[in-house]
């Protein structure tokens, strides 16, 4: 009797399990729910990026579509005075001074910062990894942590007077901007260079040292060679940061929309012109539209930097693959 009872119980239990195996349970629904949430979040981020691109682009091209400014005149003109008309009755929206200044400070800052960044990176990876990481890692993190307005403030209260005393003039200008940006891009270039140098396999170094090369020869001929794509990427990221930096530069560049005649004359970058101007113009008017066109240039340049990084990344990895094939 008991045997039969437990058998039927077993049978019932088995049917229950069979049913459970075939039907969705709470866990299935939880998973749909979780997946849905994470998809929603990621789609939100995607849409955000698309809408930034869309809105800045539509506003940025208005100068050319609504106000019929010639694109070439915009890019090559040297007079920026959007409220005025020039002798041909065209609005004076020559963005070249800002474009040139932006590129000047960016390239100069990256040029100055790279040796320092490489020095720190090599110290931390090749010369004294333990001490280096212990003391220099916090140094880099602190440099990243200092807000850009503080950099701007120090530039304004220390660098600009210093330049004024040393070279005369107002002190404002590309030189001051370069010095401020140099410190700001330094941690970016350094930390990315460190990553790239660290990823050079140890046996490259061992092989070179075993052949009797000195440490510097190893660093110079082997490590830096192998890490070049990564270091280039680091420099480009640094340049992207410098190109897009607004307030720190705006505080020391002088904000004169003139073609720069040297490192010491006040001038204006794309970002500084934007921050100074956007609040003083009315939405939808030409002076305002022209500023949005500057923003569009910034956006496009940031995309260009992105593409460059990808391009270098691809070429770098292709070269490595080729090497390993051989």
């Amino acid at each position: 009797m008991e045997g039969i009872k437990s058998e039927t119980e077993d049978k019932l239990k088995m049917d229950g399990i069979k049913k459970e195996l075939r039907n969705p349970s709470k866990a299935t629904h939880q998973d749909y729910f979780g997946k849905a949430i994470s998809y929603i979040c990621i789609t939100l981020v995607g849409c955000l990026v698309l809408s930034i691109l869309y809105f800045i682009t539509t506003r940025g091209v208005a100068t050319f579509t609504e106000n019929h400014v010639n694109l070439w005149a915009f890019l090559s003109g040297t007079n920026w005075n959007p409220g005025m008309l020039d002798s041909h009755g065209q609005p004076e929206v020559g963005a070249l001074p800002m474009i040139v200044t932006s590129f000047c400070v960016t390239v100069l800052a990256a040029l100055v910062a790279t040796p320092f960044a490489l020095g720190v990176a090599l110290f931390m990876t090749e010369i004294s990894p333990q001490k280096g990481t212990r003391f220099l890692q916090p140094v880099i993190e602190l440099l990243v942590g200092i807000p850009s307005v503080v950099y701007g403030f120090i530039g304004l209260s220390v660098i600009v007077p210093l330049i004024r005393h040393a070279f005369g003039g107002t002190g404002f200008g590309i030189l001051a901007g370069t010095i401020v940006l140099f410190v700001m891009v330094l941690p970016t270039i350094t930390s990315l260079s460190i990553d790239s140098i660290r990823s050079v396999p140890m046996y490259y170094r061992s092989a070179s040292l075993a052949l009797g090369a000195t440490r510097w020869q190893t660093i110079h001929k082997v490590v830096l060679r192998a890490a070049t794509p990564g270091i280039l990427t680091a420099i480009i990221f640094g340049m992207a940061r410098a190109f897009g930096e607004a307030l720190a530069v705006q505080m020391v560049i002088g904000n004169a929309t003139l073609m720069p005649h040297g490192l010491l004359t006040p001038s204006s970058t794309l970002t500084s012109q934007l921050t100074t101007g956007i609040g003083n113009t009315t939405m939808g008017t030409l002076p305002n539209n022209a500023l949005w066109s500057l923003a569009l240039i910034l956006l496009l340049m940031s995309l260009v930097f992105n593409v460059l990084v990808r391009f270098i990344g691809k070429r770098g990895s292709m070269k490595n693959e080729f090497k390993s094939c051989k």
Binding site: I17, L21, R22
Partner: peptide, 20 residues
């Protein structure tokens, strides 16, 4: 085959499978 059911099927609730 587990309990007369082919559990290697898309229709099967894997979470239940793993409980057993």
């Amino acid at each position: 085959i587990y309990r007369d059911t082919n559990i290697n099927s898309k229709k099967i609730n894997v979470y239940e499978v793993r409980k057993h």
